[in-house]
């Protein structure tokens, strides 16, 4: 066991970690930030995606101790300063980009990385970028629309196509 400190959503946070403690365990159990989810054990589903030093990372496939001193952003840090939904979050609600909500945190974090790298992605680019995020509810249709809308591009209105 050792203490690990990271800047999480802008605040310095410290919690214990064993050598084998994964970042996702450190966040969920150590900090009680339970918005980051675990949906698989083979690094496929992407429900655990967070940002580490600005890049998308699967929090289930990285060790907490390795990230001592890192800057981490999770779904809990995505709202605007006044607590209202951020642009991507709002687009997910507006375009019904989520149903059960379990994959949603990882989806939003991946979408945020995409829009940082590519502010006006095509539909194909959105679909390709979300390759590492599995959703079982939406058929991705409205997720893709939400990401396109969040990038400021025109999309068909909800429930009118």
């Amino acid at each position: 066991m050792g203490k690990v400190t990271m800047t999480v959503n802008g605040k310095s946070r410290t919690a214990e970690a064993e050598g084998r403690t994964l970042l996702v365990e450190w966040l969920r159990e150590g900090l009680r930030l339970t918005g980051t989810h675990v949906g698989c054990d083979t690094s496929q589903c992407g429900a655990c995606v967070v940002h580490v030093d600005g890049a998308p990372v699967k929090a289930c496939t990285v060790l907490a101790q390795e990230l001592d001193g890192a800057e981490v952003r999770t779904i809990e840090g995505m709202a605007d300063a006044d607590g209202s939904l951020g642009t991507i979050q709002q687009a997910f609600q507006d375009y019904h980009g989520l149903q059960c909500g379990f994959c949603t945190p990882g989806m939003v974090m991946s979408a945020a990385s995409l829009l940082e790298e590519n502010p006006k992605p095509s539909e194909a680019e959105v679909r390709h970028y979300l390759e590492g995020n599995i959703c079982r509810c939406t058929g991705y249709h409205n997720i893709v629309k939400a990401v396109m809308a969040a990038s400021g591009q025109e999309v068909a209105p909800v429930a009118a196509e």
Binding site: G46, A55, P56, T61, S110, Y129, G132
Partner: peptide, 9 residues
């Protein structure tokens, strides 16, 4: 390779 998150690490 993999997906964007895999490529970060």
């Amino acid at each position: 390779i993999g997906d964007p998150a895999v490529r970060s690490r």
